[in-house]
């Protein structure tokens, strides 16, 4: 029975497992957040169109700016009513609100959609000091590595501009990951895979597939 359902779902969305599908995104957005969300989504499509073919620096700057401007930083508990919820870019854009990892995910996905290699992008867990106080807070930023060994550029929602990591004394890196480590190899078809619900990253990836990002 399970086999039948899975093949049925796959054939209903042909090639949906790993394809960027604007029409599906529009439908998902319209269904979940109405016309306001669709408006943001159209702006996002316009951004993608504008930046396609531009150099990486331009892409990074514009994408960083797009989300920093459009999304309001709030805690997950206030947005989603739960401690830690990883939202998909669609959810982030739809709500117009997001937590630090929601920014990072949205930027990560957008840059990948623009053709930036996933190997160069890493989500980095950092300890952040807010303002001049000594209070530190768990935070996440997106790092851009020109080469694996090079110093990353940091795309952050606390600071509007993109800076090399060495300039960010307020951030203290702890660990990093990207899709290659967590979402590896043969589990591409993860929507029917029960394992997808076990990991936050896998969970967001599977929702993104449903909505039409990847």
């Amino acid at each position: 029975m399970g086999v039948v359902v899975a093949t049925g779902a796959l054939s209903y969305f042909p090639g949906s497992a790993n394809a960027f599908n604007p029409q599906r995104l529009r439908n998902s957005m319209n269904r979940l957040y109405g016309t306001r969300g669709v408006q943001t989504l159209e702006e996002w499509f316009a951004l993608l169109n504008r930046l396609r073919g531009a150099n990486v620096a331009t892409q990074l700057r514009n994408v960083n700016g797009f989300f920093n401007r459009r999304v309001l930083w709030r805690d997950d508990i206030q947005i989603w009513g739960q401690e830690d919820y990883w939202a998909t870019p669609l959810e982030t854009m739809g709500k117009g609100e997001g937590d630090c990892e929601d920014y990072s995910i949205a930027k990560y996905i957008t840059l990948k959609a623009l053709g930036v290699s996933g190997n160069k992008l890493r989500m980095i867990y950092v300890r952040a000091r807010i303002g001049r106080s000594q209070i530190t807070q768990a935070h996440m930023v997106l790092g851009f590595y020109q080469t694996p060994a090079s110093e990353p550029l940091v795309l952050d929602n606390l600071v509007a501009s993109i800076q090399p990591a060495s300039r960010r004394n307020d951030l203290d890196p702890v660990f990093s990951f990207n899709s290659s480590g967590l979402w590896a190899g043969n589990s591409n078809n993860s929507r029917a895979d029960p394992m997808a619900r076990l990991s936050r990253w896998r969970s967001v990836v599977s929702r993104m597939q449903e909505q039409g990002f990847v």
Binding site: R122, I124, A149, P173, V174, F175, F177, G181
Partner: peptide, 14 residues
């Protein structure tokens, strides 16, 4: 079964 992969960070760099 594909192997598990993760990056060890040294500060900001890999």
């Amino acid at each position: 079964v594909s192997p598990g992969q993760a990056v060890v960070q040294d500060g900001w760099s890999q």
